[in-house]
């Protein structure tokens, strides 16, 4: 009997509650501004989205059928492009141009700042030897930091300076071209730049590549002590620029009048310009010292040979490297 009564009360409450809940829901305050519907813009967006889908499918088809770069780029680029237009139409026609306002964040939170300071100072109160702990923690951190970085040294040596200083040129070494053919004095014509290497040595060593040119003997004006370094006006210099180490790959030797500057070896990187007739001295540009010269001689069969090593250090002027 009591049970039945409870069931009845529960049923009544449920029934009444259902009705009330439905009545209680007021419409919420609008957050987003109202904006006119634009059914035609919606149609346009839908059309653009379909077009984008078609272009994406076209991309797959082009990819499968040979993948022509231009067509692929067109399909994918236009697909992104149509999607972009669809987004922008949505933005300007289907969303309200709202001017919402928001406060900038507080400059700082004064309570929390004070509390952080308080927590820090209260936590540190039992410490009596702060300086000692600070110094020891600092040294432990520093030592550990260095220790953890130490394995990086296994990457080295980054700059193998011995490699840079290796001298492949010695008295009697013959000059060969990049294919390994021996260069003869007759091969060297006026106004032509030749690149040569020491026979039998690794051509990739810094001091290996040299440039060889023939200068009119009357123009030669080499420094004292280099009188016999240029047989028939043929001179050789290191091909590595003394400025930043680029290849001295240009030879300024024009054949036309009226402006006729003296023939010069030029580095195309920063246009350091060297005079082959005067021992590689700097005519112009940022290089700080002359190109190192290699003494030459002509062998019994007319082949070019080195008479010894370079007149100075090969390569850019790193710290310590000088003539």
């Amino acid at each position: 009997m009591r049970r039945l009564g409870r069931w009845a009360i529960a049923g009544a409450v449920l029934l009444v509650g259902r009705g009330q809940r439905r009545r209680q829901l007021p419409p919420p305050e609008p957050v987003v501004d109202a904006w006119e519907p634009a059914p035609r813009a919606e149609l346009l967006v839908a059309g653009l989205l379909l077009l984008a889908a078609a272009l994406a499918v076209a991309f797959i088809v082009i990819y499968a059928g040979g993948a022509d770069t231009q067509l692929l780029g067109l399909a994918l680029g236009l697909c992104f492009g149509t999607l972009a237009v669809a987004s922008i139409v949505t933005a300007f026609r289907l969303t309200p141009p709202e001017e919402a306002e928001e406060p900038y964040p507080e400059r700082f939170h004064s309570t929390e700042v004070a509390e952080v300071e308080q927590i820090a100072s209260e936590s540190g109160r039992p410490l009596t030897r702060r300086r000692l702990l600070g110094l020891t923690a600092g040294s432990a951190g520093l030592a550990l930091g260095v220790a953890l970085l130490a394995p990086v040294a296994s990457l080295g040596p980054v700059f193998d300076t011995n490699q840079l200083r290796r001298e492949p040129w010695r008295r009697g070494v013959r000059l060969v071209d990049s294919e390994g053919r021996v260069l003869r004095a007759d091969d060297i014509e006026l106004d032509t730049l030749h690149t040569a290497f020491p026979e039998g040595a690794n051509p990739e060593i810094l001091a290996s590549p040299i440039v060889v040119v023939r200068v009119e003997p009357a123009r030669l004006d080499l420094p004292v002590g280099r009188r016999n370094w240029a047989p028939g006006g043929i001179v050789a210099y290191s091909k590595v620029c003394t400025h930043a180490g680029c290849a001295v790959a240009l030879y300024r030797a024009p054949h036309f009048e009226p402006s006729r500057p003296r023939p010069a070896l030029v580095c195309p990187c920063h246009y350091s310009t060297f005079d082959p007739a005067t021992g590689g001295t700097v005519l112009f540009g940022p290089a700080g010292r002359p190109l190192p010269q290699l003494p030459l001689a002509v062998g019994p069969k007319g082949e070019l040979i080195a008479l010894g090593g370079f007149s100075g250090a090969v390569g850019p002027s790193w710290s310590g490297v000088r003539e």
């Binding site: 972009a84 237009v85 987004s87 922008i88 949505t90 969303t95 309200p96 306002e101 406060p103 900038y104």
Partner: peptide, 22 residues
């Protein structure tokens, strides 16, 4: 003290998405 502009939704998202796609 107050910043004025377009809210992320619904106005800004399609605009920036449009820029990203462009």
């Amino acid at each position: 003290r107050r910043v004025v502009g377009l809210p992320m939704v619904p106005g800004y998202v399609p605009r920036t998405l449009g820029l990203a796609l462009a």
